[in-house]
Nucleic acid binder design. Structure first.
Length: 488
RNA sequence: GGCGAUAUCGUCUAGGGGACUAGGACACGGCCCUCUCAAGGCUGGAACACGGGUUCGAAUCCCGUUAUCGCUACCA
């Protein structure tokens, strides 16, 4: 065996029946991290055997989501639907070796018995003897072309494995009923398809959600009956909504694409997801992808389900907004500004330095890209709208405010250079002359410049709004206030 | 119902017999900084589900109870 064959092989196997959900994304992430950490191979398998529910659109959404997160796969995508011939052959192989048997009982009959048992309050269990026929009977039914399902004959004993996160898990085989592996229409059932494909893909570790724990003994039995050595298993906990219930639409944004749309950074999403159900063992929380890979260790995997805390996700995104180099951040914020109709890509390119400086000012006050866009209009549009509350609060005395703003305008206009240090010096002098605090000038000025009571430092605002627009806005404010007072 | 999994602050977690007066982060409150808002710094409140064992000693090991979740399909 060559050394290449010893590389760990893991996979992410979503059903293309919706978007890529955060739970799936995290399962993919753990697998990806494992592969990257241990020089392994990360594979993607689309489980599209349920043709009624699978869509191409969903498949694309899954690819897009994984790519956005940077979880790239190493070999061609495997489509389970393309392997049904092998699934069928494997089922028949088990039939030949006696590990499985034909069940001519119609599905409708099983359904009826199940309903009956439930009505009695009993649990229905398929009884192997129901299907046991003499060779002659079987031959006759076969000759008559009667349809049959293939059931796996669960042997006696106990099926156990050493789970990567749960240690030992054991199931007495008596609790597992003879499950169908091939339907009477010849299509494979999930557990068979998964095992057949995982064998074919030479998967060495199956890491998946712990909702699959109960499937695992059945799958292990299939590996053994098929003459294959079973892979390692690791069952990671689920992600729950804020109410402790399974994450669903009702909880709002649950798809990875939703967060992309909401202006989250993929690095923040990955970092946050990694910390849901896994920890480094030390106190580090904000980690780059290379750090995540270096620190990843299955021992840090949690057994307990985790609640998806959007507040912490936002905080994490704020950290990434602040930490990401402006050169890298600008290209992702620019399209959002363009989309909001505030500017064009060309205009931003032309004022690259200005844009980066502005971005640096706004990002520290933001948790998402949308937050940045929301703060941006005063710097991209010639005029601003006044927030009524800001007017009430800072321009309550219209006459006084107008006077201060007029004086402010005069001092600023007189400056030889439009530069923060000089502005501050000039306005602090003005405050001194008027025997008022700096805030008494800065706050009304802030409303004139951005229309709000909140903004970055006032001198930064003046600088980034620019001389021309700033002075015009002061004029407009004075006009507004004098008109207002004469009207009143 | 049966089987399985899980159980530390509101949330994510550290902890794997004595280092625990149970640590960190998010969120929340206070203070500092300050032209506002953030960011940052300091700081406060806040948890071992319950009951039995084992042990000199238990958040840590064992058993039970409870609660939650999952599976129990000719769904995946």
């Amino acid at each position: 065996m060559s050394s290449a064959d010893l590389r760990p092989r893991v996979r992410f196997a979503p059903s293309p029946t919706g978007s890529l959900h955060v739970g799936g994304a995290r399962t993919a992430l753990f697998n990806w991290l494992y592969a990257r950490k241990y020089n392994g191979v990360f594979l993607l398998r689309v489980e599209d055997t349920d043709r009624a529910r699978s869509t191409d659109e969903s498949t694309r959404a899954i690819f897009d989501g994984l790519e956005w997160l940077g979880l790239t796969w190493d070999e061609e995508v495997v489509y389970q639907g393309a392997n049904v011939a092998r699934h069928y052959a494997d089922a028949h192989r088990l039939l030949e070796t006696g590990a499985a048997y034909r069940d001519f009982t119609p599905a409708s009959e099983i359904e009826r018995l199940r309903a009956e048992a439930e009505a009695r309050g009993d649990a229905f269990r398929f009884d192997r003897s129901m299907a046991m026929l003499s060779d002659a009977e079987t031959a006759a039914k076969l000759a008559a072309g009667e349809p049959y399902a293939i059931r796996f004959m669960v042997p006696d004993g106990v099926t156990e494995w050493h789970d990567l996160v749960h240690e030992r898990i054991a199931f007495p085989n008596k609790d597992i009923e003879d499950f169908v592996i091939l339907r009477s229409d010849g299509t494979p059932v999930y557990n068979l398809a998964v095992v057949s494909d995982d064998i074919d893909m030479r998967i060495t570790l199956v890491m998946r959600g712990d909702d699959h724990i109960s499937n695992t003994p059945k799958q292990i039995l299939l590996y053994r009956a098929l003459g294959a050595t079973e892979p390692q298993f690791g069952h990671v906990p689920m992600i729950l909504g804020a109410d402790g219930k399974k994450l669903s639409k009702r909880h709002g944004a649950t798809a990875v694409g939703d967060y992309q749309y909401l202006g989250l950074l993929p690095g923040a999403m990955v970092n946050f997801l990694a910390l849901l159900g896994w920890s480094t063992g030390d106190d580090t929380e904000v980690m780059t992808l290379p750090e995540l890979i270096a620190k990843f260790d299955t021992h840090g995997l949690q057994k307990k389900a985790a609640i998806f805390d959007t507040k912490k996700l936002e905080w994490m995104n704020g950290q990434y907004l602040a930490l990401t180099a402006l050169d890298a951040l600008a290209p992702v914020v620019a399209p959002a500004l363009v989309k909001a109709g505030l500017t064009t890509a060309e205009a931003l390119d032309a004022r690259r330095e200005w844009f980066h400086g502005l971005l640096d000012l706004l990002r520290i006050r933001s948790r998402t890209i949308d937050d940045i866009v929301r703060q941006a209009p005063p710097y991209f549009q010639p005029t601003v709208e006044y927030d009524p509350e800001a007017v009430t609060k800072q321009w309550r005395d219209a006459k006084a405010a107008a006077e201060i703003l007029a004086a402010t305008r005069e001092r600023l206009a007189a400056l030889p250079v439009w530069e923060p240090v000089a502005m501050e010096e000039a306005l602090r002098h003005l405050a001194e002359e008027l025997s008022i605090s700096g805030g008494k000038i800065f706050q009304p000025l802030r409303v004139a410049l951005v229309g709000l009571t909140v903004s970055p430092g006032i001198f930064d605002v003046l600088q980034y709004v620019g001389r021309e627009w700033s002075l015009a806005r002061l004029d407009a404010a004075v006009a507004y206030l004098t008109a207002d007072s004469s009207a009143a």
